[in-house]
């Protein structure tokens, strides 16, 4: 056999983006303990998000929400063999350095935590570990990608169990992608200016007809039907925050949401997995949220 070349490159764009490609069609679940992480893995989650409190509890507790205790993150990493993600505050690059040091597989620079910087996000190109960031529209998604995010998730409104914002954000991004894809080249610079996005990435969206990275749905998925709705609308996969461990029967909900995400186009399976799950997480009506309670509006 010929000699193999042993020069290897880590942390390349292809390797960062590649892990997100491997998560497609899957469910990433918020967990706060090793026991919850095992329930998620057993149900078929493709990854878990390690955090101290699920968004519904962060909302209820108020105050400043920060990166989880590294001890919690490490114990969750030790409990499961699937990838482990963790959240840092927007702009808090030292929390990100700590999470990278711990060995988490993906960092979520997340509006669910209290932003550390109201103006600037982390320069994610500097890291070997890949990042996922939230977005409500195409401009926001492309700004995050320009900063180095290798995966996007629509923001929705975390911790509400209400799918309406997740639907709004995915529809908006897709509508804006359709506009870019249909626009003649001479309009792209002006569209880029309007969206506040780098024109190179706007051109790439036109060429691809989609975002240049994987786009999951997040922020409001509470039932198998919610997950399948986001998949039928074109999400690449779903994050479920409070929807599992704030439901009456987490193991059953976790398992049903995984199956609904895979068989999202098969009403026979969806009807079967939706039966007998017990009470879903309590939901919140958007109109009851004060402006300062809307996590999606934190940093753009």
């Amino acid at each position: 056999m010929p000699q193999t070349n042993v020069t290897e490159e880590r942390g390349t764009w292809r390797v960062k983006k590649g892990l997100a490609e491997m998560l497609k069609g899957g469910v990433i679940m918020d967990v706060t303990t090793p026991e919850q992480a095992k329930i998620a893995e057993e149900a078929g989650a493709v990854a878990v998000m390690a955090l101290e409190r699920v968004p519904a509890d962060i909302r209820a507790a108020g105050g400043v929400a920060r990166m989880a205790d590294p001890e919690v993150v490490v114990r969750i990493m030790e409990a499961v063999t699937i990838p482990v993600m963790a959240k840092c505050r927007i702009g808090h690059f030292v929390e990100a350095q700590i999470l990278e040091q711990l060995g988490v597989d993906y960092i979520d620079e997340s509006e669910v935590l209290t932003p550390a910087d109201e103006e600037f996000h982390i320069n994610k190109h500097e890291f070997t570990v890949p990042f996922v960031c939230g977005a409500r529209n195409l401009g926001e998604a492309l700004r995050r990608i320009a900063e180095g995010a290798a995966m996007i998730r629509t923001k929705g409104e975390p911790g509400t169990g209400n799918i309406v914002e997740a639907v709004r954000h995915l529809r908006r991004i897709h509508a804006e992608i359709r506009r870019v894809a249909a626009a003649p080249d001479e309009e792209l610079v002006t569209i880029a200016k309007e969206y506040g996005a780098p024109v190179e990435l706007v051109r790439e969206v036109k060429r691809l007809g989609r975002l240049p990275v994987v786009n999951f749905s997040a922020g409001g998925v509470a039932t198998p039907a919610d997950a399948a709705l986001m998949m039928q609308m074109g999400a690449d996969g779903v994050f479920v925050g409070s929807g599992i461990f704030k439901s009456a029967n987490p193991a059953a909900y976790a398992r049903a949401i995984v199956r609904a995400t895979t068989h999202y186009n098969d009403p026979e399976v969806l009807a079967e997995v939706s039966r007998n799950l017990g009470q879903a997480m309590p939901g919140l009506e958007m109109a009851t949220l004060r402006p300062e309670d809307r996590m999606q509006d934190r940093s753009q």
């Binding site: 000699q3 193999t4 942390g11 390349t12 390797v15 892990l19 988490v104 570990v129 890949p130």
Partner: peptide
Amino acid sequence: NAYGRQRESFEAEVQVSEIPGPPVKAVFIR
């Protein structure tokens, strides 16, 4: 996960014995 976690994921060139020509670019992810 034999190489470790995501930060250890890498790209390299690999010669495949039944595929003639130059090595293939191989992306190893976890």
